[in-house]
Design a protein around this nucleic acid. Structure first.
Length: 360
DNA sequence: GTATGCTTTCGGC
DNA sequence: TTACGGCCGAAAGCATAC
């Protein structure tokens, strides 16, 4: 089973202020560069009627909603995380295995508690939706299917507040007429490549020889596309353990190539992400910087340490060196946004190094 | 050639 | 027609060791 919280951030905002219900609600990420610069994070369905959607610039959403009583709100992520955590608790209690797949979605494996009976899974879905609505006033869309891939595609079918069941004997009719971009992982690039092959629907993809897909997309993606088109997926619902990376990214006031104009913001980001690492009592072995240029192209440079660290000075210093290195390697780069990413994480145990075990 | 590890890019939400 | 965030995880691409 896949559970997706409907237009989650905007629904949280509707619950914080009931007076905005029924009006277009747009949750925004303001970059701080100018009054209205930034993008739409998500919006409710009233706003979607006018063409507003995640990822478009805020100024464009303003124009689309200029004739309406549209509400524009800044993102309040800590609040959404609190609501999400409580809902995840409800979900976890209702499955044999639970997997959080993002702030607003999760998978449950119900195989053993329903003994594979889809009607029983459907009853559990009804119960879950009632409980989440009662406790948190959040509606969800749910997909029930033989595996994670199909469950996710099923939850997408009837949004918002939908419940879609795809029993094993209905898999091919469910997939048949859908466009290829309904397959998770098929974005604009893969869609275009398939379009060139005149493959638009999943049933057309299913009819293609797997060796042709290997040739066009490589073994990994080719095999995935072939199996997905047949509704095959054997990934288990698996509890996600520790996070694998932390990052902080922000937009510069003005674009620049000068390291001196980037370093103050970069240091702030390095400090913030170091603090997050320390708060989680973790250490990192790899430090990366990310630069997004004026043309929105993304470039990164990274460094892997001999021994992992959580030291803010070390992380700040490495970040500064990496951005200098990136700027030198791209003499014409005009930077718009910068970020710092920490990865190769591990849990910090009692000792910070092994020196006391080495011979003197 | 295969396995492994590191760097960079891609894509979802 | 343009406009344009901040995260995350995974895959791709490449180098090295055997």
């Amino acid at each position: 089973m896949h559970i997706d919280f409907d237009y989650f951030y905007a629904q949280c905002e509707e619950n914080l202020d009931h007076s905005i219900r029924g009006r277009p609600v747009v949750v925004c990420v303001y970059s701080g560069r100018t009054q209205e610069s930034g993008v739409v994070s998500t919006c409710n369905y009233e706003a979607r009627k006018y063409g507003v959607k995640a990822g478009i610039p805020i100024v464009r959403a303003r124009k689309l909603l200029q004739e309406t009583q549209g509400v524009f709100l800044p993102m309040n992520k800590p609040h959404y995380e609190e609501v999400s955590d409580r809902i995840m608790g409800i979900l976890e209690a209702n499955g044999d295995h639970f997997e959080k797949a993002g702030i607003d979605e999760a998978f449950l494996d119900l195989t053993s508690r329903t003994r594979g009976e889809f009607r029983e899974a459907e009853q559990i879905a009804v119960e879950i939706r009632r409980e989440v609505l009662e406790q948190e006033q959040i509606t969800c869309s749910v997909g029930i299917a033989p595996n994670k891939l199909l469950a996710k595609m099923a939850s997408d079918r009837n949004k918002p507040n939908g419940l879609t069941v795809v029993a094993p004997e209905h898999v091919s009719e469910f997939l048949g007429g859908l466009p290829v971009n309904e397959i998770p992982g098929v974005g604009r690039k893969t869609e275009e490549k398939l379009e060139q092959m005149e493959i638009r629907r999943i049933d057309q993809l299913a009819a293609i020889d797997v060796s042709i897909l290997h040739q066009k997309f490589g073994i990994s993606l080719g095999t995935y596309l072939h199996r997905a088109a047949l509704g095959e997926d054997d990934n288990p619902v698996k509890e996600r353990d520790q996070p694998t990376q932390f990052s902080r990214i922000a937009t510069l006031k003005t674009n620049t190539h000068q390291a001196s104009e980037i370093l103050p913001l970069l240091r702030t980001l390095a400090s913030a992400v170091s603090e997050k690492l320390a708060m989680k009592t973790m250490i990192c072995r790899t430090i990366s910087v990310i630069a997004i240029l004026a043309d929105l192209s993304i470039h990164t440079r990274s460094k892997t340490l001999e021994s992992p660290t959580c030291d803010e000075k070390t992380i700040t210093q490495a970040s500064a060196e990496l951005i200098e290195q990136l700027l030198q390697s791209m003499p014409s780069a005009t930077v718009r946004r910068v970020g710092v990413k920490l990865s190769a994480l591990s849990i910090r145990s009692g000792q910070t190094n092994i020196s006391k075990f080495l011979p003197q």
